[in-house]
């Protein structure tokens, strides 16, 4: 994608904290990224790394308390979404920013027909009358590849399979022609052959509709197949960010490098033993004062204990939050 284009979404220095009885959880620590028109930004990281909380923070979807978005800016058009009132947010959610979540059963309402759930945002946000909304709803179901769409509008969510429910969720998210689609692990609960169907659908829809997409997953394979650019999250921070080929071909952060090594190959040589990342993910009970990966890092040195590394530019459109330089095997000058 051409650089220099104005972003549709610009997130700066986002910090989100949960206040719990056991103290604070610093779930998102100074996360910054932007999203260009039409691009697909992949977000990878293991569970608890802050992927979902980041995205929910953007559009005020976190319950407060316990959540508190403590700092940052989320620039979307003329608005800073973190300062916007609930009415503005409601008008943006579902209309200009669409969402798809991991488990379609929890986000579809079991007591309403799929047709109703598709038509509601069309009537509310686009002011369509019933007839026009129904026609558009049918069109949307056809768009996401559900056979016999006209008749299926009358069916309830439980009458669809897992893969079809996820298609319905995508149809709802696309209903009002959003500028941005945020998809949080939309295929994680699905089987691989159904996941392949959905990924194919998304590629197709991007060409047809051209919206910008944020795609969250913990599956490096999924990211490799669909993303233009990738952010790797660890311990509530972005630890590496690069165009997709660059990230997989020239990973710089020890976590990214280790993560790529733990996935066994489908072809070619089989390693006798899987490479592991020893240890456990960090406990996020305080603002980071050191590198969050240091306890598991095989390259850590004294500085990593004292300072939290900033995102250091390491190549064109490529940055890594690490003091170590894989090219020299020594510290990076920064």
């Amino acid at each position: 994608m051409p650089d220099g284009q104005l972003p549709v979404l610009d997130v700066r220095d986002l910090k989100t904290v949960f206040r719990t009885r056991r103290g604070e959880v610093h779930a998102v620590n100074s996360v910054s990224f932007d999203l260009k028109p039409g691009e697909l930004l992949g977000v990878v990281g293991e569970s608890g790394s802050g992927k979902s909380v980041t995205m929910m923070s953007l559009i005020g979807l976190l319950p407060s308390p316990p959540a508190e978005v403590r700092d940052g800016q989320v620039l979307f058009g003329d608005n800073d979404l973190l300062k916007a009132d609930e009415d503005t947010l409601r008008a943006i959610r579902g209309a200009r920013i669409g969402f798809v979540f991991q488990d379609p059963m929890t986000s579809l309402n079991p007591v309403f027909t799929v047709g109703y759930q598709l038509m509601e945002p069309l009537r509310k946000h686009m002011g369509l009358n019933k007839k026009a909304a129904r026609a558009r709803a049918q069109e949307l179901l056809e768009l996401v590849g559900i056979p016999d769409a006209g008749r299926r509008l009358k069916d309830y969510p439980h009458q669809f399979s897992g893969g079809m429910r996820q298609r319905v969720m995508i149809a709802i998210a696309l209903a009002c022609d959003p500028e941005v689609l945020i998809a949080d692990e939309p295929t994680t609960a699905l089987d691989v052959t159904i996941q392949a169907q959905i990924l194919e659908l998304v590629k197709e829809l991007r060409q047809k509709l051209g919206m910008a997409i944020v795609w969250i997953t913990h599956d490096l394979g999924v990211i490799a197949g669909i993303a233009d650019r990738v952010m790797v999250m660890y311990g509530g921070q972005i630890v590496e960010h690069a165009p997709v080929k660059e990230l997989f071909g020239n990973p710089q952060h020890p976590y990214t490098r280790a993560l790529l090594g733990t996935v066994p190959a489908m072809h070619g040589t089989r390693e006798a033993r899987l490479r592991v990342i020893e240890g456990q993910p960090p406990v996020l009970d305080a603002p980071p004062a050191a590198c969050p990966f240091r306890a598991r890092c095989t390259h850590s040195f004294e500085r990593c204990e004292r300072e939290n590394p900033p995102r250091i530019p390491v190549g064109p459109l490529h940055d890594a939050a690490c003091f170590w330089n894989p090219a020299t095997g020594g510290p990076r000058d920064a």
Binding site: S161, V192, T193, I194, A196, Q197, I223, G225, G249, M266
Partner: peptide, 24 residues
Amino acid sequence: LLSAVPEPDPSLEARTERIILKGD
């Protein structure tokens, strides 16, 4: 089934002929 497994390698990914099964 094997062709549906996404591979963590963007260059390989572009070359893979994926068999997309229809339906459930």
